[in-house]
Structures are given as C-alpha cells and as structure tokens.
C-alpha cells in the first residue's frame, strides 16, 4: 500500500480489513468528538454572556471617540440588563498638570474601617465577598513590621497598645504590576493613577503576584450588587461594574477626583487622617505635609516609588 511497510506480507491483512477498521476508527473518533462537545457544553452559557462586539473590542487606548461611545453605550445597556440599574459611564481623562498623591496620618487613624466600607459601596464591589480595595492592619505599637499586624481584628477601636495602618493601591511610579502584564491591560496615566482596562485584561493574575501591597483584586465570580445599591456615577476605567474573570484595583476614585471631588475613602474618614491632593500644586495641603512631616513609605526598599505616604504628628 505505501512504501513504509517493512514487510509486504505483514501489511496484507491490514489492507484487507482496511475499510472495516477505518469505519470502526471513524465511529470511535465521532463518538469521542461528540462526548467532547457534550463535556464542554457549559461553555455555551459563557458564550451567551460575551457578545461579538465585546469579543472584538480593541484596547482602550486604541479606541476612536466613536468606538468609545459605542462601547460605553453597550456597557450601560448591559448594566441595565444584568443589574436593573440606570447608570452613566463617563470616560474621565487626567487633568493636565495634575499628579495625585495620598497621605494618611498614622497618629490619627483609629482603625474604624469607614474607608473600607465607603470603598466597597462607591466602587460597586461584590456584596457577597464584601470586597474593598482597602485593608487595614492593626499593628502593635513599637514596630512597623507588618508580620506583627492583623487584618482580621475586631472589637472596639482604637486599642491602647495598637495603631492602625490602612493599605490600598500605592499608585507606584515604578509599578511592578504594570511591568508584568503580558497584554498591557494595565498602565499608569499622566496623573499618576494606575488603571486597568477591564475589557482587555485576560485574567492571568500575574499582576496580583507582582504587587507588594496586595492592592489588586480578581473577580472570581460575577459581582452581585442589588439594583438600588448600585452607584450609578461611573467611569470606564474605575468603578463601573466589573466583568467576571478580570483584575481590578483602587483608582483613587478617578471618577470623582478627576472631576474635582475627593476620594470616597477620604470623605468617609471620621478622623481626618486622610489627605489627598495634587503634589504639583505648591500651595496644596498635601505638599506642605510631605515637606514638613515625618513621612514613611511602605516597603520603600523595593524601589516601587509609591505615590502614597504615611506620616506622623
């Protein structure tokens, strides 16, 4: 039959049975293929949730104004359909001449956790997992070693022998999370905010591994938020309801701060420990603090150059 058979005699019976064997093999191959299609049938459900337009969508930085408008209209319609809420998704861009930085007065923060809660509501986080971009460590006085801290403290605060260290995205100037992303789904904008295109992220979570501050969160499931709890004031790169399977992070509430408002966590803080502002503005409060206070930077030795500072009175 072919020139490969070592011995014509040995190959003969196979030739005789060829048609029958081919039919049997074909039948088994068909059976296998059918079983495979049945096995992966749950994918049909997933495919229903992804429209062709979403599948084909280009990277945020490559969308034309018209495409952007289409994308935003689609996302608003999807939020209406899935969550029953009428929302406005804006495309807030950095304000020229602005570089946002944050500072927290550790002498004042008392660990009440209002910032955590405000973030949860403002940013349309999944209710079931009680997600938030902020974690507060309760630390024993006399150390800055986070190993001594606890994120699961309870009871009345502040405790006498403790101080409190809220941690969120440090909006690093040398962000390791941006470096490691294989598809440029996350980048640093001109005002210093590190953002994620939730419609471009492939969900590899390399950035979660790279971040030294545990600032990133992954959507392990589709976020659940009751209709009337949805914050309708949204932005494409910040608090719009995220799709399942992508990474998200604190954006310094860019949908507020780029419109001249303060971050939700700052507004919610009852102690006044939080200070936010434009470091390029010489007369700003934040500038005065950074120039005059004793300032501490988290994991400074890693060279990530945070735009987030802790200070003491």
């Amino acid at each position: 039959m072919t020139s490969t058979e070592p011995s014509k005699n040995r190959s003969l019976p196979i030739v005789e049975n060829f048609t029958r064997r081919a039919a049997v093999k074909g039948a088994f191959a068909t059976l296998g293929a059918g079983a495979f299609v049945a096995a992966i049938s749950p994918l049909r459900q997933a495919a229903k949730n992804t429209t062709a337009a979403e599948f084909m969508q280009q990277h945020y930085t490559e969308l034309s104004p018209e495409q952007k408008a289409d994308v935003i209209a689609r996302l608003e319609a999807e939020t209406k359909e899935k969550y029953g809420a009428d929302v406005t998704i804006a495309d807030d861009r950095p304000i020229p001449g602005t570089k946002f930085v944050y500072a927290i007065n550790l002498s004042v923060c008392n660990g009440n956790g209002k910032c955590v809660e405000a973030c949860h509501k403002e940013n349309n986080h999944d209710r079931a997992t009680n997600q938030s971009y902020i974690r507060v460590l309760e630390m024993p006085k006399g150390t800055m070693d986070m190993e001594q801290g606890s994120t699961t403290y309870s009871g009345a605060v502040p405790k006498d022998d403790k101080f409190y260290l809220p941690v969120q995205c440090q909006q690093c100037d040398e962000p390791p999370c941006v470096d490691v992303c294989p598809v440029k789904a996350t980048w640093k904008e001109e005002d210093g905010i590190v953002v994620v295109d939730y419609n471009w992220c492939i969900g590899c979570r390399y950035c979660e591994a790279a971040c030294p501050y545990h600032a990133r969160r992954f959507n392990w499931k589709e976020p659940e938020v009751p209709t009337k709890e949805i914050n309708p004031d949204q932005s494409y790169l910040s608090n719009r309801v995220r799709p399942v399977g992508v990474v998200e992070k604190c954006t310094y509430c860019l949908h507020r701060t780029r419109r001249g408002k303060l971050p939700a966590c700052l507004e919610a803080c009852p102690t006044g420990a939080r200070v936010f502002g434009n470091i390029l503005d010489k007369d700003s409060n934040i500038r005065w603090i950074l120039e005059n206070k004793r300032v501490y930077i988290l994991k400074e030795e890693l060279g990530t150059k945070p735009a987030f500072f802790y200070y003491f009175d």
Partner: peptide, 17 residues
C-alpha cells in the same frame, strides 16, 4: 488558569498587545 480564555487573542503578537 486564565480568567478570560476568550481573550486569549490579546496575547497574540500582531493582533493583540
């Protein structure tokens, strides 16, 4: 391990980023 295997093409040089 990918959260969004449907976006695998984003990693393909040329058509992705």
């Amino acid at each position: 391990d990918l959260g969004r295997p449907d976006r695998f093409w984003h990693m393909v040089p040329g058509i992705g980023k």
